[in-house]
Simulated assay, not measured.
Amino acid sequence: MLHQTIPGMFTSPPRQAGFSTARIGGEAWRVYVLRGVDRTVAVAQREIVRDEIASNAAIGAALPAALLIPFSWLLVWLTLHRTLRRLDLLAADLATRGTMATEPLPLHGIPQELTPLITSMNGLIVRLQAALSAQKRFLADAAHTLRTPIAAMQIEIDNLVAGAPLALPRLAALAAGARRSAQLTDRLLRLARLDEPPALPATRFDAARLLLDCVADHAALAARKHIELSATIPPRFLVTGAEDDVRTLFGNLIENAVTYTQAGGTVDISLRRSQAGGCAEVRDNGPGLPEGAQARIFERFFRATPEVAEGTGLGLAIARRIAERHGFGLEVTNRTDAVRGVMATVTMPGSWA
């Protein structure tokens, strides 16, 4: 006898035991048949229902994983960004540090894995600062010690010149050597002081008047060499800084121009407005800078044309250090106006009164 939950599904009991696929009423059914001794049981389910159940199960299993993957990537990105951001800040701190910086690199916020590296770098900074300090102390002490015997030698030479007119040529050469030694000593001392951390007084002064004074200070030297010294300086340009240091900056540039310009040449000094505020220029028609010298012009003891005139090679190094301490721009290049010679340019923030 045939009993069915859905009447009319089977016209006769299925013969094949186990799983099979049958087409009933135009639809595909999945059928499972279990045969016994005196009866047969068949269970059937539409294929479309089975596919729907399988699809829903697959979606239910895959959806959490699909949602977890982007969240995992976001978490990894945020973690890396935070870590690399700290490294970027550390790199920026290193890039903006000057040679006089003594503060250790901060350890706050640095990943634990990088802490030994930063600690080692801090130790290196301390050792480098100690070496630089020792070098600066030696330079300052040596220059200061040399001043007394050089000054005494200069006095004795002057006394000999007064009492021995027949030996004037040799004594004049000795006097010139003593003056050069004294000048070198003074510049070494000034350079040693400029290597110290800046402590600029907050004074406001007229850079135009100061530049004009520097021109007047070098008028005698220009006259002895028959060099025409001209100045185009409008009145009242106010800047903030150390007036004595800026005087040294202007004086070194003018002295260089006069020293390296041949007799009969010209040196033009001017001050004009610029986007930064003011721009001071010192132009000469001397021999100019030889090829490749511009890259080294600010190195200590470097002289681009030693065969033209004597010097210490420290004037431009001192000028650049002063410019850096004041936030001025300083360039020394060959002239670009079809005239042979050198042009030194100082750009300064300030106000025209």
Results as ranks from 00 to 15, higher is better:
12 S>G: 01
89 L>W: 14
127 R>A: 12
234 P>D: 07
148 T>N: 03
155 I>C: 05
196 E>I: 01
229 L>R: 06
139 L>Q: 13
146 L>P: 10
59 I>K: 11
176 A>K: 01
81 H>W: 13
110 I>R: 09
81 H>D: 13
212 L>V: 09
205 F>R: 01
341 G>C: 02
103 E>A: 13
64 P>E: 08
72 S>W: 14
347 T>K: 07
197 P>W: 06
273 R>I: 08
177 G>V: 02
345 T>N: 09
119 T>G: 11
172 A>I: 12
333 T>E: 10
305 T>Y: 07
86 R>T: 11
7 P>K: 06
268 D>L: 08
83 T>D: 09
135 Q>K: 08
349 P>D: 09
113 E>V: 08
345 T>R: 15
221 L>R: 10
172 A>H: 14
344 A>K: 00
62 A>D: 04
156 E>I: 11
260 Y>H: 13
33 V>W: 10
280 A>R: 11
143 A>T: 04
115 T>I: 14
55 S>A: 13
88 D>P: 00
338 A>P: 04
228 E>P: 08
300 R>K: 12
2 L>W: 12
308 V>D: 08
167 A>P: 06
346 V>L: 08
217 D>T: 06
38 D>Y: 08
124 L>C: 11
17 A>G: 13
263 A>M: 14
44 A>L: 02
189 L>P: 00
26 G>C: 04
299 E>F: 14
256 N>P: 07
164 A>V: 12
254 I>D: 05
55 S>K: 13
109 G>E: 10
234 P>E: 07
135 Q>C: 05
28 A>R: 14
138 F>G: 02
119 T>A: 13
184 L>N: 09
212 L>H: 00
36 G>W: 05
289 L>D: 02
326 H>L: 07
277 G>E: 11
128 L>S: 03
343 M>Y: 05
303 R>I: 05
203 T>P: 06
27 E>M: 03
276 A>K: 00
271 L>C: 02
46 R>D: 02
40 T>N: 03
209 R>G: 00
144 H>T: 07
323 A>N: 00
132 L>F: 10
208 A>K: 01
88 D>W: 04
295 A>I: 10
82 R>H: 06
347 T>Q: 10
92 A>Q: 15
106 P>K: 13
259 T>G: 04
320 R>A: 15
60 G>V: 00
131 A>G: 08
65 A>K: 06
265 G>F: 04
269 I>A: 10
98 G>L: 09
127 R>I: 03
88 D>T: 01
118 I>T: 11
143 A>N: 05
291 E>Y: 07
117 L>H: 14
238 L>S: 09
81 H>Q: 13
73 W>S: 05
92 A>F: 11
245 D>S: 05
84 L>T: 04
87 L>K: 08
271 L>T: 03
48 I>W: 14
209 R>Y: 00
159 N>D: 15
21 T>W: 15
278 G>T: 05
